[in-house]
Design a protein around this nucleic acid. Structure first.
Length: 472
RNA sequence: GCCGCUAUCGUCUAGGGGCCUAGGACACAGCCCUCUCAAGGCUGGAACACGGGUUCGAAUCCCGUUAGCGGUACCA
């Protein structure tokens, strides 16, 4: 039987990088095994679930290139089956109705907390006779349904952790169905996983303690349990669970910052999983071929933005300018930069080697097409001060030679030859001629080689910027 | 408190008894290249949490300690 796996986010927030990685591992596993990847939206928390969140999650997965074969299914639509499953358990005697009110429970919990101990439901309603229970139901008393937790060991062979074992008596008779007839998470998950014939549950580490409860439900229902694989958490740089205060946690944030989806996916795949050996850049095909649950790390991993950006730079340099044009244009639009009919690709080629994100590319392109965005930075000011009068003088020498070039000869080779001969003739250090031009054109001391910079900014605009800088 | 999970350079990791005076990548420092920066190349510093075992031999196996994390809801 081919594996069937699912990613089951609750639409109560944006697509978190941890969730994205869980989805990625499920997807990789399905693609590797020829199985089916199912998307299920767990919207049972009606208060916090929104369609907007669902849409963002779907968009995020699509952006990463994670495609699903079935769904999205919406858990909220299966209330009737959840209820029926709970009722069947009551009928079989493996679950029972509980008439304890929330107030009583809260009071008992508070009492237990005083001694420093933890509250465990004592199962009192489980000792009610069937006759008593049905009488109270008939009287209209609200009742939840609790699972009768068996004593003894509950264990499973986790695909990433190996054997994990709990004792039934450490767990209490937890609630399956609320008194209003809606399911609690653990019931809904198991009911749906059975219905969808899920074979491997690949999910976050934080669900380890839910697993014995869910196994107890499988057993009560007489169903075989799936293989469980609990993948570790993603932490912030301080070792705490990754959250808003660490900066960007949503996949969409990285999209906005100009991270390429392939880079994001590659980075996420290597966070907590290793193909073995020294591989870093993994094309999709290899990622799928090499993937295995055994290669998943047991310990939590820290999200390292610097490495993500390095990887993004790697992908950026492999990517032809034509493929980058769309997203770069989008960022330029957001910055309010208009290109008119200027071709974008040469601009991208000029700057992408020095960029780590699409945003880097866009802001450098902006400076090259829009003189208003040229601002003298600290290094630029420093250089002007260091050169003193030579700054303007050298610019004028350059301008004289450059303006003699006809438009047709305004290209890399001629520009370079022209400037080199000026430097030689005037016995100038090449840098003392080039750097002022760089500052004149960009405001800073860092850019592509000056001849390329001049070419991409264009003849008239370059000469204008040089003239303006020479005066000041 | 109780239950559970985890523990190799700052970070991501390789490693599954001798191949380890522990390898790679990011980051950092230096050098080369060079009109600047990046890229690239070279070099350097940097780790097996601690304590006991088992074994001829342990980063690798076992036990304990410590630390971190997760859970302990009519949340998911």
């Amino acid at each position: 039987m081919l594996p069937r796996v699912r990613f089951a986010p609750s639409p109560t927030g944006y697509l978190h990088v941890g969730g994205a990685r869980t989805a990625l591992f499920n997807w990789l596993f399905a693609r590797k095994s020829g199985g089916t990847f199912i998307l299920r939206i767990e919207d049972t928390d009606r208060e916090r679930s929104t369609d907007e969140h669902t849409r963002v999650i779907l968009d995020g997965l699509s952006w990463l290139g994670i495609t699903w074969d079935e769904g999205p299914y919406f858990q909220g639509g299966y209330g009737a089956r959840h209820r029926a499953d709970a009722e069947a358990l009551v009928a079989a005697g493996t679950a029972y109705r509980c008439f304890c009110t929330r107030e009583e429970l809260d009071a008992a919990r508070a009492e237990a907390g005083k001694g420093g101990g933890s509250f465990r439901y004592d199962g009192r309603c489980g000792r009610l006779t069937a006759a008593e229970a049905s009488a109270r139901v008939a009287r209209g008393e609200p009742a939840s349904i609790r699972l009768r937790m068996p004593d003894g060991e509950i264990a499973w062979d986790d695909a990433v952790h190996g054997r994990i074992s709990f004792q039934g008596h450490d767990l209490d008779d937890f609630i399956l169905l609320r008194s209003d007839g809606t399911p609690i998470y653990n019931l809904a998950v198991v009911s749906d996983d059975i219905e969808m014939r899920i074979t491997h549950v690949i999910r976050g580490d934080d669900h380890i303690s839910n697993t014995p409860k869910q196994i107890a439900i499988y057993q009560a229902m007489g169903k075989p349990m799936p293989v469980f694989a609990h993948v570790p958490m993603i932490l912030g740089s301080d070792g705490k669970k990754l959250s808003k205060r660490h900066g960007a946690t949503a996949v969409g944030d990285y999209q906005n910052q100009g991270i390429l989806p392939l880079a994001m996916r590659n980075f996420l795949a290597l966070l907590g999983w290793s193909p073995g050996g020294d591989r870093e850049i993994l094309p999709e095909q290899e990622m799928i071929e090499l993937f295995s649950l055994e290669g998943i790390q047991k310990k939590a991993s820290v999200f390292d933005l610097a490495k993500l950006e390095w990887m993004n730079g790697q992908y950026l340099s492999q990517q032809p300018a034509a493929d980058l044009a769309g997203p770069v244009r989008h960022h330029l639009d957001e910055m309010g930069v208009t290109l008119g009919d200027r071709p974008l690709e040469p601009l991208i080629d000029a700057v992408k080697a020095r960029s780590r994100t699409l945003l880097d590319i866009a802001s450098q392109v902006a400076v090259r097409v829009d003189a208003a965005r040229v601002t003298r930075d600290a290094k630029g000011t420093q250089l002007t001060a260091r050169l003193g009068g030579a700054f303007g003088a050298n610019l004028r020498l350059a301008a004289a030679a450059l303006s003699a070039l006809p438009p047709a000869e305004w290209e890399h080779t001629t520009l370079e030859a022209t400037l080199k001969s000026v430097a030689e003739r005037e016995s100038l250090k090449l840098g003392d001629l080039m750097q002022p031009i760089r500052v004149a054109l960009t405001g800073g001391t860092v850019s592509e080689p000056v001849n390329e910079l001049l070419a991409v900014v264009g003849r008239e605009e370059s000469l204008a910027r040089i003239a303006r800088a020479a005066e000041s």
